[in-house]
Nucleic acid binder design. Structure first.
Lengths: 252, 252
DNA sequence: ATACCTTTTCATCGATAGTGAACGTGCTGG
DNA sequence: CCAGCACGTTCACTATCGATGAAAAGGTAT
């Protein structure tokens, strides 16, 4: 099980460099070598290779990730069925509520943000496209977990554990189970400052024939959601959006 | 100039596989090996490596590009100054005109789409995020070429040539020069079905202190733009959008 | 002109990426 | 129900090729 098979070092290094460039924004061979403790010539050959392949471009002698990654990302995004069916509805949700709205799928045991729409322009703490977060600590993640097969949930918890991010993060298996049961009843998953202090999030699963294809959410400052009426209003909006997306799936 | 330096084969192969997966949507080791004429075990080891790195995920025994590419793409997008300053204005342009609006930068001698907004939902022929097109055959490309240093234009034409895509594509250097001069005068670049039959596009450069940071455009079916009044109206809207973005740059 | 950066090139050597054959498994069709 | 097929996966082997340090080539500021 523990994937002992050989991996290709050069490829790992190449992606390490890509990630280093993501962090550094732009850098030359020396800076990359420094950042990753590689020999200057190794860094150079890798950068040269990636450049020739079109994945980097050079400005003022420094390398940057090129639009090829944007193209790949766009293709990936459009490959998610939930994106094709949900995109417009998520944007509408954001407009209607005036809050940040997200569309999330499960991938490799984590919640991956497939689309994000913000009416307010605020982005503090909210997920950005492609970002992965632990499922047990997010509303969207819990909405998905609540409708995944039990064995898959086991697997996910085993792989990623239940790390704590704030004082409110769920850290025990029992607590998680009872919360998932509640989510199945109410149809709404709540992240009450469990992943980030001050951030509240409400999510609903997108269920088609019993399978969870993703989840939708709105999120914003916990203070603003404090009012129970506002909370109920937003819950309803989220549930409704999920429902509309489900219908979109059916009338493919 | 001709980059004779050694490149790393394993890395090239890895990206070939990524691109193959982009085309195939999802595939197993055998399918990838077939597609790229690799030995099954080589394809397997590469897929395994990319999977371990988190760049692929497995569903029903088939590999797919993962959200990591979406994350990288998002980072790249947000790294373009023109995106940060122009995003909102491009969306407004699309809303106001009811047409598709694009934001483009020059990268490696081609026009790379940094953001695309469509009010209509139509996407036929329009650029998608990250897509690269020849500059001489697109309105956005020509708007940029018109304000690039002459030597850079030479370089670009030398590297990529002036390939023809429709009956209206510019294919001679002189024709291009005179058109660029006209663009500098009018402030508007026109793609009259030069890259794709039936597609018309109007673009304006985003100039800050004489440097072209990118270009904005609207595009749609050539028929709809036929009316000279509509054309003038759209030209004005595009020019105005470019101007607003330029101002956004200045008041950073 | 000098010193100190950088990027780029080169020859060398040991690790490793690619290979084909073999194993295990799940499916399909006879 | 079994045979056969195709797939993913593993393995041992070896030529290849990626990593390396040193040094050349280019650039900039002192």
């Amino acid at each position: 099980m523990a994937g002992t098979t050989k991996t290709i070092g050069a490829v790992e290094r190449a992606f390490d460099i890509v990630e280093a460039l993501e962090r550094l924004e732009s850098a030359g061979a020396s800076a990359v070598a420094e950042e990753l403790s590689l020999s200057k010539s190794t860094a150079y050959t890798h950068l040269h290779t990636l450049h020739e392949q079109g994945y980097l471009h050079k400005t003022d002698g420094e390398y940057r990730l090129s639009g090829q990654f944007l193209r790949l990302g766009t293709t990936v995004q459009q490959g998610y069925p939930v994106y094709r069916h949900g995109r417009a509805h998520v944007e509408e949700l954001a407009d209607r509520t005036g809050e940040r709205a997200n569309l999330v799928v499960e991938e490799r045991g984590k919640g991956t943000c497939v689309h994000a729409a913000n009416a307010s322009g605020r982005t503090d703490g909210a997920m950005i496209r492609g970002e992965r977060r632990h499922m047990h600590a997010t509303a969207t993640g819990k909405a998905l977990l609540a409708h995944l097969p039990a064995e898959r949930v086991d697997e996910i918890v085993e792989t990623h554990g239940l790390p704590s991010f704030t004082d409110h993060t769920i850290t025990s298996r029992e607590e998680l189970e009872s919360e998932l049961a509640e989510i199945r009843e109410t149809g709404i998953a709540i992240d009450a400052e469990e992943s980030i202090d001050g951030l509240r999030c409400l999510a609903a699963p997108i269920l088609v024939e019993g399978t969870a294809y993703g989840s939708v959410s709105v999120s914003g400052p916990a203070r603003e959601f404090a009012d129970p009426e506002r909370d109920a209003e937003l819950s309803e909006a989220v549930r409704k959006a999920a429902n509309v997306i489900e219908l979109d799936f059916v009338f493919e």
